[in-house]
C-alpha cells in the first residue's frame, strides 16, 4: 500500500484559506443557542411525549441523531397534472415505447433497509451496541458459526464472526442480533474477501444467523428454489445467477438492462431454522454439492460429516 503517496495527498486536502477565514469570522458571531431540548420536558406534557415519539421515529428513518431545532415545514405535495391546459388527457409521444420486464419486478422485502433505502441505523443514544466476537457468538448462538465442513481452499482468514447485538437502552430488549462469518479463498488486508483468479467475484460462502429474523439489504433474483429435509430440519435451497464485470460499454446484455458482462456466476443459498435461530448460508461460485455438505455439517453433525456422506 502506498502510505507515502496517500499521506502526501492527505496533507494537501485542506479547505481554501478563504473558506477557513469565512468560518473563523462566522464563529466570532454570538452562538445560536439550541432551542429547548425536548428531552427535558419529556415527562411533563402528553403533547411533548408525542413530539418525542415522532422525533424518534423520524430519527430512525433519517438515520441520524435527532437535532432539536426549528420545526421543519411540511410542503403540500404539488398535484401531478393529469390533463393539459386544454383539458385533453396527457399521452406520451407516439415514438416512446415503454417496456416492463416483470420478471425483474420484486416486492420490496429488503427489511434491512429504511424506506429511503439506506441501511437501518440504530441511534446510539437509544440503543446499546455490543459488537459480536467469537466468545459472544458462542454465548448467544451456542456455537461459533464455523461449520464442521469447509470446502478445500477456503479459510476464515483468521477473522472471527462479525455483527452486533443492539439493545433498547430503556427496556433492555434485544432489537437486532445478526451475526455472520465468511470463508473465502483469499482476503484483502482489511478482511474483505479477495478473488484469486481472473473472475473478480471471490469464491466462498457466508453463514448468517439471527434469533429475531435475518435482515436483508438486497434481494437475489432467485430462479429456482425447493425445500428438502436435512436430518429432520426443513432447508430451502435456492439458486440465483448474477453478472460480473468488466462490463462492455459498447454492448448490452440480452435482457437489455445492463451492459454485457464478462460472465455470470452462481449463488446458492440454504435457508433454515434450527433451535430457534434463523440461518442463511450463501455460497458464491461454489457447486451446489459444496453448499449441501456445508449445510449438512452445520445441521446434522457439528463434529463433521461421516465418511460415508454423499450427495445424491
Amino acid at each position: 500500500m502506498n502510505h507515502k503517496l496517500f499521506a502526501s495527498m492527505k496533507e494537501q486536502l485542506n479547505p481554501s484559506l478563504q473558506a477557513q477565514g469565512s468560518l473563523h469570522e462566522a464563529l466570532s458571531q454570538p452562538v445560536k443557542r439550541k432551542s429547548i431540548s425536548w428531552r427535558k420536558y419529556a415527562a411533563v406534557a402528553a403533547c411533548a411525549a408525542l413530539v418525542i415519539a415522532a422525533g424518534s421515529a423520524f430519527s430512525h428513518l433519517r438515520g441520524g441523531p435527532f437535532h432539536p431545532g426549528p420545526p421543519v415545514a411540511v410542503a403540500t405535495p404539488t398535484p401531478v397534472p393529469t390533463s393539459q391546459p386544454s383539458g385533453e388527457p396527457l399521452h406520451p409521444p407516439d415514438e416512446w415505447e415503454i417496456t416492463i420486464h416483470w420478471d425483474n419486478v420484486v416486492v420490496n422485502e429488503a427489511d434491512g433497509l429504511t424506506p429511503d433505502a439506506t441501511r437501518l441505523y440504530r441511534d446510539p443514544e437509544l440503543y446499546e451496541e455490543t459488537v459480536f466476537d467469537l466468545e459472544g457468538v458462542r454465548d448467544y448462538y451456542g456455537w461459533s458459526l464455523a461449520p464442521a465442513y469447509v470446502p478445500d481452499g477456503l479459510t476464515g482468514g483468521g477473522h472471527g464472526p462479525y455483527g452486533s447485538l443492539f439493545r433498547d437502552r430503556t427496556t433492555g430488549e434485544v432489537i437486532e442480533d445478526q451475526a455472520g462469518r465468511g470463508f473465502w479463498v483469499d482476503f484483502w488486508e482489511d478482511g474483505s474477501p479477495k478473488s484469486d483468479d481472473d473472475i473478480v467475484i471471490p469464491k466462498g460462502f457466508t453463514i448468517t444467523a439471527s434469533r429475531l429474523g435475518i435482515l436483508h439489504c438486497c434481494l437475489l433474483p432467485v430462479d429456482q428454489a425447493y425445500t428438502t429435509d436435512f436430518c429432520g430440519t426443513a432447508v430451502t435451497l435456492s439458486h440465483a445467477s448474477l453478472p460480473y464485470g468488466p462490463f462492455d460499454p459498447e454492448k448490452m446484455d440480452p435482457s437489455g438492462l445492463y451492459h454485457l458482462p464478462a460472465g455470470y456466476y452462481d449463488i446458492y443459498v440454504a435457508s433454515f431454522t434450527l433451535d430457534g435461530v434463523e440461518y442463511e448460508i450463501q455460497a458464491d461460485r461454489l457447486e451446489l454439492e459444496e453448499l449441501i455438505k456445508i449445510t449438512a455439517s452445520a445441521i446434522c453433525g457439528r463434529s463433521g460429516l461421516p465418511a460415508s456422506f454423499t450427495v445424491g
Binding site: M1, F6, M9, K10, L13, G63, G112, T118, R119, Y121, V131, Y162, G180, G182, W188, D190, G191, S192, P193, K194, S195, V200, P202, T206, C217
Partner: peptide
C-alpha cells in the same frame, strides 16, 4: 480506508451500511 485510516466498522457506521457491504464494495 486508505486516506483516513478508518476501520471497516467505522466506515460502515459513517456510511450507514453493514461492514460486509463495505468490504464487498471495496473489493469491487
Amino acid at each position: 480506508f486508505y486516506f483516513e485510516d478508518l476501520s471497516t466498522e467505522a466506515i460502515a457506521k459513517a456510511l450507514r451500511v453493514r461492514p460486509g457491504t463495505v468490504r464487498m464494495r471495496m473489493t469491487r
